[in-house]
Structures are given as structure tokens and as C-alpha cells.
Write a protein that binds this DNA or RNA. Structure first.
Length: 652
RNA sequence: GCCCUCAUAGCUCAACUGGAUAGAGCACCGCUCUUCUAAAGCGGAUGUUGCAGGUUCGAGUCCUGCUGGGGGUACCA
């Protein structure tokens, strides 16, 4: 049990005579806000003051007298309106450190009630290049899964890939009309990728052609509206009226801007084709490509033999392409049950909803109407096709019945918030009440201009190019910092630091908010970055080399920890809080809390290194104690970063 | 229109879910390397937590209204 849990349990016992249910109050016992108040603080007396009709300070004193903290805390005092400040007993601290030193799990106790979690993350569409939008789900989901596992839960990771959608219609169409057989034979992955992009371009072209006039009309219309409103604004005299017009004005302006932007993007797509006579010819020869692609997709879904065969043939190549990225990011899934896996179950889902009276037909579509929502959740379109929501319901059913999941976490961006609300409510309506269903949502990755991260030409940024750029920038720094190392070593540093930086930049952010992407910031050598943490590990390895210490021996023949300086005690308190950081992450699935913990730990550790020499410690036992600190530190950072999917290096 | 969400230091973000004087990092100004890695450490300045009310011992956090951004809003995923 970690220190906080231990303190809480002792307080719970002491509070039992005072209140019916002390568990509610337990969250009011926490790590001290400020080290000068001690290590922990209990704020329970204030809310109790009201309940019991006594001054909070009096209650605080009463609690202090009844709570048994012997051996755990050596100092307790009441401060302010009724805060109880607690300081851990040094001997207790030292014994916790000793436990952590000898335990491969760093003394972090496993949960007493392990649950089965399905963590669903990454979920890209196969055959489409992964882009910057996929990084958050991948990195956050991977970290949460690892942390749950570390805490002692049974974790099943699942990649709910889109392997059944329109992109296959495109590839199939491309295969049938534009295949370069030699290229396909030589390098199938690349050729399929080319076909996808090519067909996509043609579809986009025709789409753009049909839309461009509409958009132009709209721009004219909106411009007209805008000048009309401006006239009205200058004529308006009443305050309320002016305000109303101003509001409309900005709304129209916004719509105009977005139409203009859309218009530009359409024009560009058209230009790309029409400026090339060869492409233009092909585009004209495939006027109906958009419908054709949908037709190929529909044929696949209906079980058309030829298309099913092609799909089966293409899928492994598409997977290979994606695995390349996952290998570079060092991310794995236990299962990869894509949309196609659930395809055959969808009819039964709809039938069951209808049979149980949870769904009915409206405007030709099968809908689930729920009280809290204006619009229903549609589970079958009027043309008979199923939707994402249908697949998701089948997925929940499968996770409960096949995986026996107690919880399913879907790591998906926050735009799908309402979809998941509806989905989860529908699932509960369906009878899946015992499973925790959580949408672990996250914000958008923005460029430095505060708008969604795009390339200069306006495309979404490819994930692969992101990895390349991170690594090459890291390499430049690694070469500069370590001119004496071999090229292989520099490459290794660049990969670990580069990918680590990319992941950490994402994870260290509160997942709910949007964040601005910046290579410079994430690869910064200082501050709350992966490199800063990785460096602390490398420093320890340097100390071990210089002191020629045998760490196996240090661990197997421990000496008592010594607090020769204040900073050593401070480091000790930080070190034993690793388990608390893990607990906190899991309350709301927020990996940034682990990042903050590791960052704070590292700050304290660097202060420790400034003030405390290991090699030149005053006594042999102090030297051993400090080596033990170094060992705990490096293992905590290694484990902590590992839980975030980030590696460490011996030298950097 | 309706619903969700966000607004914190010049910038990027925290704040343990209602607790003590709102914290870090960048950037800025200084200082510390013949010393276990200066990818480090130490010191300095920075705030009406968007605005106006309310709830209470106590509010960045909860409730109401307003302003401003982002997202969603029945057959896309």
C-alpha cells in the first residue's frame, strides 16, 4: 500500500465514530500543496465542522488525537482553519525505499480488484496514410493500456481499424483500371498506395467540378448579405439592434471565410488535374468514377466474389504498410478486430433492437430514439446499409461476451463526444449495464498558427513525415552533443529521443485540450520534455560507470538509506510517490499526471546531483545509500517512461 | 436555433476534481563548468484566472447570465 492509501485507511478508522461513511472524505486527504506544510494534508475537519456543528479546528484536534499514525507519520499539526498537516516518519520512508529497491515493481502494489479492460486505440483506416490525427489516439491509448497493466489489471488492447470502407472501393477500382502489373509484382504496398491516391485524386476532381459553382454562388450570396448587413449596421440607431447586427455580421463573415477556403481548395484540386493534359484525359474518360467507387464498395459488402477476393489479397499489404509505422512507434495491439470482423453480426444487432422494441423505423431508417437526445441514433440507413454506430454496438457486445470486459475505453477525438454518449446509452438500453463504457476523448492537434495542423499546401500532415522530422531533428542535436560517439550510437539516440519527444509532447498535455504542435518545443533540451527525463537516466548510467559500481551488488546487499541532506529526504518522498502517480492517472485516464510526476521527480533528482556527490561521499555507507538513490531513480524513470511508451538510453 | 466544450503570466501549459500565498517550462536579465554529462543547477521579474452576479467557512474549479474561440447537431466515420 502506498503512503497515501495507508494514511487514508488509518484516518478512515479514526473517522468511523464521527460519520456514517468516511470514504467520501478520503479524497480530502492528499499530498501537501506545498512542501512547507509537510508531506501530506488532511482537509477533512472543515466539511465535518458544518455537519457536526463544531468549530473545524476543534474537530481537527479531536481527529488528531484519535488517529493512529504511529510508525507512519512522526509529526502532525493543525493549521489555518483546520488543516491537518502530516509529515512522514523518516524510518518509515527508509523502509519503503528499501522495499522499492528490492522489488522489480518498485514497491508499487497491485490493485486488489483487478478488472478486465479493453482499450481501443489508434483505429486508423487501412490503405489510407496515417496522419497527425492518429498520433494522439495511438500514444494516449498505448500509455493508458500500459499503466492499467502495471497497476495490475487485465488489459486487452484492440485496434478497431477501418478495413471495410470506401477506400477499398477506390483501390479495387484502381486495380481494375490503372494497375501497373510490374510495379504491383515488385512492390505491392507502394503500388496499392499509388492506386488509392490516384483514384482519390480523380474522385476529388469530379467532386470539386460539381461543387465549385455552388461554392462560387454561395460566396457571391454571402458577400451580398455582408454588404447588406453593413448598410443596416450604419443605419441602426438602437443599441440592441446594433448588437444583433454585429453578431449576424460576424456569423456571415465566418461562413464566407470558410466558403472561400473551400473554394480555394476545390480550385487547387481542379488545377492539379487540368494542368496536366494526360491526367485531364484520364479524368474525362472516367466521368462517373465517384459512383463507380461506391458501387465497387457496395459489391464488396454484398459479398461479390471478385471484390472479396481482391480485398482479401490487398488487406495484408495494407497491414504491412501500417505495421511499419507501429514498429517505428513501438506500439502493439493484442487484437486488430476491424470493421470487417463485425460485418456479419450487424444484421442481428438491428434485428435484436427491433425485436426488443428499442428501435423503430423512421423515414425509412431504423432508429433508436432516446429521451435525452433530440435526434435518434440510426443503426440502419434507408438504403439498408449499416453505420458506424451499428458496428460499435456489435463491438460492445463482443467485448462483453467474448472478452468478458468490465470496462471498455475508446480513445477517440472529442468531436465524437455525442456519438459516444448516444452509443453508450443505447448499449445500456440494450442491457449492457455492468460494463464501464468510457470515451477517452482528446483535443485537436493544432499548428503554430492555432489552426488544425496542416502542411503548407493545406493537406493533413502524414504521420510518417512527422516521425522522420522528429528523428532528423533529434539526430542533429545528438551529433552536436555527442561528437565522439559512433554514427550508430548517434542514430540510436536520435530515434529514442526523437520518437520519445513526439510522444511526450502529446502525453504531457492534458488530453482534453487542443494543443499546439511545435518541433522546437518538443525537442527542447530543457523543460518538461522527454529529453530532460531521458537525460536523468543517462546521468545515472554515467555515475555508475565513473564510480565503477556493481548495481546488482548494490541491490542485493542494501545498506540503510541515509538522509544526510534535506534534498535526499525530498528525493525519497518523491520516489515513494510513484504508485500514487499511477493511481491518479487511472482516476480519469490522464497520462499527463504521470508526466508531471516524472518531471518533478527529475527536477528534484538534478538538485540532488548538484548537492550530493556520489563518488566523493563522506563515508562509504553514504556512498552506498546514494548509489541506491541513483538506482531507484533510474529504475523509476525507466519504468515511468516505459509506461508512456518511451525508451531510455545509456549515454546522450 | 439547440447541445457539448474551452478561455489561467508575453508564449506553451499545470493546478491532485471545493482548500492555505494560483504553479511549471519557454522567452528575458544575471550567476555557476580543470569537479559523478552545462541536454544541468541557482537567483530575478511576470496574474483583477474572459466579464458580471450567485452558492459557502473557502471558488480558477459549482450555479446563472454575458462575451469570445472550437466542436457537434437523423441516414459520414
Amino acid at each position: 500500500m502506498n503512503a497515501l492509501a495507508e494514511i487514508r485507511s488509518r484516518f478512515a478508522t479514526a473517522l468511523e465514530p464521527l460519520v456514517d461513511s468516511p470514504t467520501e472524505l478520503m479524497k480530502m486527504i492528499k499530498a501537501a500543496n506545498d512542501a512547507k506544510f509537510g508531506d501530506y494534508q488532511a482537509n477533512v475537519a472543515m466539511p465535518l465542522g458544518k455537519e457536526l456543528g463544531k468549530p473545524p479546528r476543534e474537530i481537527a484536534v479531536q481527529i488528531m488525537e484519535s488517529v493512529k499514525l504511529d510508525g507512519l507519520c512522526d509529526n502532525m499539526e493543525v493549521a489555518g482553519p483546520g488543516f491537518i498537516n502530516l509529515k512522514l516518519d523518516d524510518d518509515w520512508l527508509k523502509s519503503r525505499l528499501a522495499t522499492a529497491l528490492s522489488d522489480s515493481g518498485l514497491g508499487v502494489s497491485k490493485v486488489t480488484d483487478p478488472k478486465t479492460y479493453v482499450v481501443d486505440f489508434s483505429s486508423p483506416n487501412v490503405a489510407k496514410p496515417m496522419h497527425v490525427g492518429h498520433i494522439r489516439s495511438t500514444v494516449i491509448g498505448d500509455a493508458i493500456a500500459k499503466i492499467l497493466k502495471f497497476a495490475g489489471h487485465n488489459v486487452i488492447t484492440d485496434n478497431h481499424v477501418g478495413d471495410w470502407g470506401t477506400q477499398f472501393g477506390m483501390i479495387i477500382y484502381g486495380y481494375k483500371h490503372f494497375l501497373d502489373a510490374d510495379a504491383y509484382k515488385k512492390d505491392s504496398v507502394t503500388e496499392l498506395g499509388r492506386l488509392y491516391k490516384f483514384v482519390r485524386q480523380l474522385v476529388d476532381y469530379h467532386g470539386a467540378k460539381s461543387k465549385v459553382d455552388d461554392v462560387a454562388d454561395k460566396i457571391v450570396e454571402l458577400t451580398g448579405q455582408l454588404s447588406g448587413l453593413k448598410e443596416k449596421q450604419s443605419a441602426a440607431t438602437e443599441k440592441a439592434e446594433t448588437k444583433k447586427i454585429k453578431k449576424e455580421l460576424s456569423a456571415v463573415q465566418k461562413r464566407l471565410d470558410s466558403q472561400k477556403e473551400a473554394g480555394e481548395s476545390l480550385t487547387e484540386k481542379i488545377k492539379a488535374i487540368e494542368s496536366n493534359p494526360n491526367l485531364f484525359g484520364i479524368a474525362n474518360a472516367h466521368q462517373k468514377i465517384g459512383q463507380q467507387v461506391l458501387l465497387e464498395t457496395a459489391k464488396l459488402h454484398e459479398g461479390d466474389e471478385e471484390n472479396k477476393k481482391l480485398w482479401t489479397e490487398f488487406l495484408p499489404f495494407c497491414w504491412e504498410d501500417m505495421r511499419k509505422i507501429y514498429r517505428r512507434m513501438n506500439v502493439e495491439h493484442d487484437h486488430e478486430l476491424g470493421e470487417s470482423f463485425y460485418h456479419d453480426m450487424l444484421g442481428a444487432v438491428v434485428d435484436d433492437f427491433e425485436a426488443k422494441g428499442f428501435a423503430r423505423t423512421s423515414d425509412g431508417a431504423v432508429c433508436v430514439f432516446m429521451d435525452d437526445y433530440e435526434t435518434p441514433m440510426i443503426i440502419r440507413k434507408k438504403d439498408g446499409a449499416f453505420l458506424y454506430s451499428t458496428t460499435d454496438l456489435a463491438t460492445i457486445k463482443h467485448r462483453v461476451e467474448h472478452f468478458k470486459a468490465d470496462a471498455a475505453l475508446c480513445v477517440v477525438d472529442h468531436r465524437q463526444h455525442e456519438h459516444f454518449d448516444k452509443l453508450f446509452d443505447a448499449a445500456r438500453l440494450w442491457g449492457y449495464n455492468d460494463i464501464e463504457l468510457t470515451h477517452v476523448s482528446f483535443g485537436t492537434v493544432l499548428g503554430e498558427d492555432g489552426k488544425p495542423f496542416k502542411t503548407r499546401s493545406g493537406d493533413t500532415v502524414g504521420l510518417e513525415s512527422l516521425l522522420d522530422e522528429a528523428e532528423s531533428r533529434a539526430l542533429a542535436i545528438a551529433v552536436e552533443q555527442n561528437p565522439d560517439l559512433t554514427e550508430d550510437q548517434q542514430q540510436h539516440i536520435a530515434k529514442t529521443v526523437g520518437i520519445g519527444a513526439l510522444k511526450y509532447a502529446d502525453l504531457s498535455q492534458n488530453r482534453g485540450s487542443d494543443y499546439k504542435f511545435s518541433y522546437d518545443k518538443m525537442l527542447a533540451l530543457r523543460g518538461n520534455t522527454a529529453a530532460y527525463l531521458q537525460f536523468s537516466y543517462a546521468r545515472v548510467q554515467g555515475i555508475i560507470r565513473k564510480t565503477e559500481a556493481d548495481m546488482e551488488k548494490v541491490r542485493s546487499n542494501p545498506v540503510p538509506f541515509e538522509f544526510a541532506t534535506d534534498i535526499e529526504r525530498e528525493l525519497a518522498v518523491k520516489l515513494i510517490r510513484f504508485g500514487e502517480a499511477i493511481d491518479e492517472v487511472l482516476i480519469e485516464y490522464k497520462p499527463n499526471l504521470l508526466c508531471s510526476y516524472l518531471f518533478e521527480l527529475t527536477q528534484v533528482f538534478f538538485q540532488f546531483l548538484e548537492k550530493c556527490s556520489v563518488k566523493d561521499a563522506e563515508t562509504e555507507s553514504l556512498k552506498q545509500s546514494r548509489l541506491q538513490f541513483c538506482d531507484l531513480m533510474s529504475r523509476t524513470v525507466e519504468t515511468g517512461l516505459g509506461l508512456l511508451g518511451i525508451g531510455v538510453i545509456e549515454q546522450m
